[in-house]
Structures are given as structure tokens and as C-alpha cells.
Design a binder for these strands. Structure first.
Lengths: 144, 144
DNA sequence: ATAATTCATATAGAATTAATATGAAATAAA
DNA sequence: TTTATTTCATATTAATTCTATATGAATTAT
């Protein structure tokens, strides 16, 4: 029952970009240094993020990444789901809309309740909120 | 981000015992048949459950298992955690009590919020509640 | 040209998952 | 007392997933 490093690193990566959202392009190398995460691993991760259109990229010298939209536009859920898939404790083949509650098993309902609770958390925290909390703490430069 | 089959089967197993909580001892073979789960795999699982004292067992012919306490006494959380460990999306080394919120990273706080939301769900559903829901649905004999 | 950087894909070791297998110990019933 | 049934204990294994590392092509500013 764990979110893998990909999902967690993705959030730290996006938060790093949000905190340093100055309009400049930030190379992945810089983020890897700050976050102490393998550069090549981060490259894989941001590739997925980039393909989803969450960031803009510029190749070559002086290139890098920046957020495609303002931090208010990104929820934790959007980012983590991109790397992890649905944040469901089980594979729920029955989509909530397709079946009545009564047609599903009681254990399936439990997993659905857990999923809903998780979604409620991650869909209501934006990068902007995390940036705000980060500055509020103000205890350590890149302790994300 | 999944609960493994052990945790899920454990819940179905305990729910099966709760539904059939007549005072008789139920062999694991019976449960395996009803739930269509490998008998040997279920044995491994109930061994852990038994060691935790959640069930009483009797060996030999006519033996089997039964709940050690009434279904009201078991929450989904107790059962699933037994097999899965903490239902936390990451390993949270900092126990909530040991550190001030401000001393932890903003991402750690997110994972903590997710954990709290999950705990809130699983700690407030008992086996008795699931038995009630099961009878309420009443659509299929062992569709757990 | 050169250095820096994204982009694309392949490879690999470690860990975890999900079982299956083997057999000993205990108990009721024949 | 034998037999069938059942829990209890532990070992093994195949498949999958995780967590990277590696190689190198394409692009761009200097």
C-alpha cells in the first residue's frame, strides 16, 4: 500500500518547479541536485509529466523545464495519478457509474470508500497551496 | 498504491467467519471453496490472523476456526493492517507525536493527510457493519 | 565547434507478490 | 487403533514491479 518513488518524486519535482516559478527554464540537473534524486531517474519521470503537457520544455544549452500553467492549476492528485495511475487500493473494474451500489460486493464498497477518501485529499491540495505552506514553514531552503 | 491480495483475502476471510458466526468451527477448506481462493494461501493468511488472536482454532477432524470476539470488535483497519502493515502511502519515519508539523516537509504532510483519511475510513467500519450491509444487499449467497 | 540539455529507449539488480509444495502435529470418527 | 481431516510450520518458486543505471541521438545557446 505504497505510492512509489515515481509518484513521490514527481510531486517534489513539480513543487520544486512551482517554488522556482520565475519564468526561467530550469534544467532537470538543478532539481536533481536540490532534491538529491538521481538525475536520470528524474528525466524519466519528467518525460511522462512533459508528455501530459504539465510542463513546457526547451532543449539544449540554457534549456530546461517550467510549469505550463500557474501552480493553482495543479492538484496533488493530477500529478501523482500521472505516475501511479488511479489512487485506488484495488483495481476497481466496476466504474461507480456503471453499477448500482447494491450490485457490488461489500468489500468492493470498502475499497471504493477508501479511494474516495484519498481522492478527496489529493484533489483538494494544489501546488499553490503547497508553495504557501512551504513559505509558511520557512525552515529550510529546499526541505520539500 | 495497492492493498495486496493478502490484505483483501484476510478481510473476506474474516467477513466469511462473521457471516457464519454460529459458534461452530469452520475449516479453512470451506472458506476457500466459498471465496474461491487457494486453500493453502488462505492457510498462510489465517495463520497470521490466528497468531494475532483474532480467531480461535481447533486442530484435527471437525476442527477449524471461529472469531475470537463478536464482529463488532473488529474493524477493517485492524484486519487489513495485520497483513499489510500501516496503511500509509509512504513510510513515515517521523511519528506524528515526535515532531511539530512545521519540522516536517510539506510533501510529508500530504502523505500524512492521506494516511489519516484512510485510517478514518477503515477504523470506522466494523465486521458487524459489513455483515449488516451484506444482508441488506441480499443479492447473492457469498458475493462478499 | 562545444557544452549543455532534452528526448528515447534498453538493460538490470533487488524486492515484492502470489502462490505452490512438503510434511509434521493434533483430533474426531470408524 | 487406524484413518481421514484439519491446523501448523516452513521452504521454494515464478512472475511482476520497483528503482534505478546506461547509452546515445537530437537540439540549442554560446
Amino acid at each position: 500500500m505504497k505510492i512509489s518513488t515515481k509518484g513521490r518524486y514527481a510531486l517534489r519535482l513539480m513543487l520544486d518547479l512551482a517554488i522556482n516559478n520565475t519564468g526561467e527554464y530550469i534544467p532537470i540537473k538543478r532539481i536533481a541536485e536540490r532534491q538529491e534524486i538521481s538525475e536520470k531517474y528524474l528525466e524519466q519521470i519528467i518525460t511522462q509529466i512533459s508528455r501530459a503537457g504539465f510542463v513546457r520544455s526547451v532543449r539544449g544549452s540554457q534549456g530546461g523545464y517550467q510549469l505550463a500553467s500557474p501552480p493553482e492549476e495543479y492538484t496533488v492528485g493530477m500529478i501523482v495519478r500521472l505516475l501511479e495511475g488511479e489512487l485506488s487500493p484495488v483495481v476497481l473494474t466496476d466504474e461507480p457509474g456503471n453499477y448500482e451500489q447494491a450490485d457490488r460486493s461489500v468489500t468492493a464498497d470498502v475499497w471504493q470508500e477508501i479511494k474516495d477518501a484519498i481522492d478527496d485529499v489529493v484533489d483538494n491540495i494544489t501546488l499553490a497551496e503547497l508553495v504557501r505552506r512551504y513559505h509558511e514553514k520557512g525552515n529550510c531552503e529546499y526541505y520539500i
